[in-house]
C-alpha cells in the first residue's frame, strides 16, 4: 500500500506518502496565497525523497476542509485528477480530523478550530484524537464561547482568538502526515472514508464583478 495524502484547506500546503506502516516522506509549506503554485512541486519533491514515482501510489487521501475555498479546491482538484489518471481510489478526510489526530492532547474532550477568515472559525468538538463529536461548523468565536468553554483547543483558529480559546496550542495547521496516518489506520480497520467532496459550509457570495460576462435571467 502506498497512500499519497495532501491538504490545502489551511494556509499549509502539505503532502505526505504513507506505506501502510509509516509516513515515508512529507513536506509542509505555509503560504496561504500560493497553494496552486506549491502543491505539484511538493508532490514531486516528496516522491523523489522516497525514491518513488507517482504510478506506485495505490490510493489518494485529500483533506476536504472546511477551509477557504480557493485554496481548498487546489487539493481536491489535484486529488480527483490523480485518481482519474492513475485509476486509484481517492478518499476524503475532514481537515479538522487530521488536526485532531495530530493534536496529541491525551484524553479529551477538546476543540479543533481553523481560521475561516471574516472573523470566523471552522471548528468541531472531539472526544479524543480519533472521535469527532460535532459536525464541522463555521461561526464567530464569541458565538460559540459557551460550547467550547473550559476545553483545550488546537489550530490557527483557536490561536487567533484567545478570548474564546484561552487554552489554545499547537499544532497550528494540519499536516498531510497526520492525515495519511489517520487514513491508513481507518482503512486498515475496514472503515469507509468520506468521498472527496469539499466542505464549503458557506453559500457562495453572489457578487457579480463589474465588466464581466452578463447573464440575464431567462
Amino acid at each position: 500500500m502506498l497512500l499519497l495524502a495532501l491538504d490545502t484547506a489551511t494556509p499549509a500546503v502539505t503532502v505526505a506518502l504513507h506505506d501502510g506502516t509509516d509516513v515515508i516522506a512529507s513536506s509542509s509549506q505555509v503560504d496561504a496565497r500560493r497553494h496552486g503554485e506549491l502543491l505539484l512541486p511538493a508532490v514531486d519533491r516528496v516522491l523523489a525523497e522516497a525514491g518513488l514515482k507517482l504510478n506506485a501510489v495505490t490510493g489518494v487521501v485529500v483533506g476536504i476542509g472546511p477551509g477557504p475555498y480557493t485554496g481548498l479546491r487546489v487539493g481536491l482538484m489535484t486529488a480527483d485528477t490523480f485518481g482519474l489518471a492513475l485509476g486509484v481510489p481517492v478518499h476524503g478526510l475532514c481537515t479538522l480530523d487530521g488536526l485532531a489526530y495530530a493534536a496529541d492532547i491525551g484524553q479529551g474532550p477538546f476543540v479543533v478550530a481553523t481560521d475561516a477568515r471574516r472573523k470566523e472559525v471552522y471548528w468541531a468538538r472531539y472526544a479524543d484524537s480519533r472521535t469527532r463529536l460535532t459536525d464541522p461548523a463555521v461561526d464567530r468565536p464569541a458565538d460559540i464561547a459557551d460550547q467550547v468553554a473550559g476545553l483545550p483547543a488546537v489550530g490557527a483558529g483557536a490561536l487567533l482568538y484567545p478570548d474564546t480559546f484561552p487554552q489554545a496550542h499547537e499544532p497550528e495547521h494540519v499536516s498531510a502526515a497526520a492525515l495519511a496516518s489517520l487514513a491508513a489506520e481507518k482503512l486498515a480497520a475496514g472503515e469507509e472514508l468520506p468521498a472527496p467532496r469539499p466542505l464549503y459550509l458557506r453559500r457562495p457570495d453572489a457578487q457579480v464583478p463589474k465588466n464581466y460576462k452578463v447573464v440575464t435571467p431567462k
Binding site: Y69, T70, R73, L76, M77, D80, T81, P198, Y200, P204, D205, A206, Q207, V208, P209, Y212, K213, V214, V215, T216, P217, K218
Partner: peptide
Amino acid sequence: ARFGGVVPEVASRAHLEAM
C-alpha cells in the same frame, strides 16, 4: 442566471464538480 451575471464562486464550484 438568477444573479444576473457570472458569480465567480459558483463558477469555481461547478468547475471542480464537472472537470
